[in-house]
Design a protein around this nucleic acid. Structure first.
Lengths: 93, 93
DNA sequence: TTGACAGGCAAGTGAAGACTTGCCTATCAT
DNA sequence: ATGATAGGCAAGTCTTCACTTGCCTGTCAA
């Protein structure tokens, strides 16, 4: 499994996670359209595809293939490793 | 405030956070020695100093100056923004 | 007050990473 | 079968970033 922290390092990848949080199971083209329309991110299809690969290798995204479509599903369980590693100071609580 | 995700992206910076978790309030030289002895990370003092700057800008470290010493204190509260952004799937619970 | 200690500043190098362009494969409808 | 759709592969470019080297400043002890 790849690097969760490296996957989260890029702002475009974080926006992709935001979009999948709001609407899970999108295809590559759907993600392209939503990044362009809602976030003014006019990247090439390849650029976004490469981002999705990084997110998949980090375990943040699972792939479901159906015909010529490739659906992307969010998986936030790798984030738990962050909190297991460093305890959070909940100040004033 | 800087980028928490960018700060966590580098493995050396994550090791520094580990060391401060185990022993808080270390100076630059102490951190250098511990990285070398316990993690076989023989980096220059400048390299580690630059890492500490990134961590400080991200709000993960606070500085306390005393004479010619500069003590570094861990602050994990910025990590909370990660969990507020993406809800965690606690599978099987 | 002189030397040792703790740290800072800035330019330079080399590698990783984000993004593009061009071309190719596979699936589906007409 | 043919065109349109959804996606993949592989350079190549350009920027960011980690790290080093050299030199400078401030603090403390002898």
């Amino acid at each position: 499994m790849g690097d969760v922290f490296k996957a989260l390092a890029d702002p475009t990848r974080r926006t992709i996670l935001d979009e999948l949080t709001e609407r899970d199971g999108q295809t590559l083209f759907e993600i392209c359209v939503r990044l362009a329309n809602r976030h003014h991110l006019n990247l090439s299809r390849q650029a976004i595809s490469q981002h999705l690969t990084v997110l998949e290798e980090a375990g943040m995204i699972t792939i479901r293939r159906q015909g010529r479509y490739k659906f992307h599903h969010l998986d936030t369980t790798p984030l738990a490793t962050i909190f297991e590693r460093w305890p959070i100071n909940r100040e004033g609580q």
